[in-house]
Amino acid sequence: MNEPLSKDAVAHIARLARLELGEEELSRFAGQLSAVLEHVEAIQKLDTADVLPTSHPFELVNVLRDDERAACLPREAVLAAAPATEGGRFRVPRILGEAP
């Protein structure tokens, strides 16, 4: 059986998932996620050596269309839902670090 998730491991996953968790959440999620992983690990014992993975119930084909102009959503209708906009664009906090 695999090791239960530690609080540190949960903190690392949370960082990858862009979540900030408090101490209480880290402990609780470590226990709950470990319990789920312990249950689902049963499938690791199944012999699937000759089985190909399925990502989608049916075979996917590319959907193509002629490269013709078509109407899209009006810019102002889309921007109206954004938390902050400026000059017809989404406004976000600083992305890059301070200039040296």
């Binding site: 979540l19 600083r94 992305i95």
Partner: peptide, 20 residues
């Protein structure tokens, strides 16, 4: 960024994590 809740942060990663 594009819709829903935003909780501000000093940079975009902090804003993402605090919002989520």
């Amino acid at each position: 960024v594009r819709y829903g809740l935003r909780v501000d942060g000093d940079d975009v990663q902090a804003m993402n994590a605090r919002t989520r």
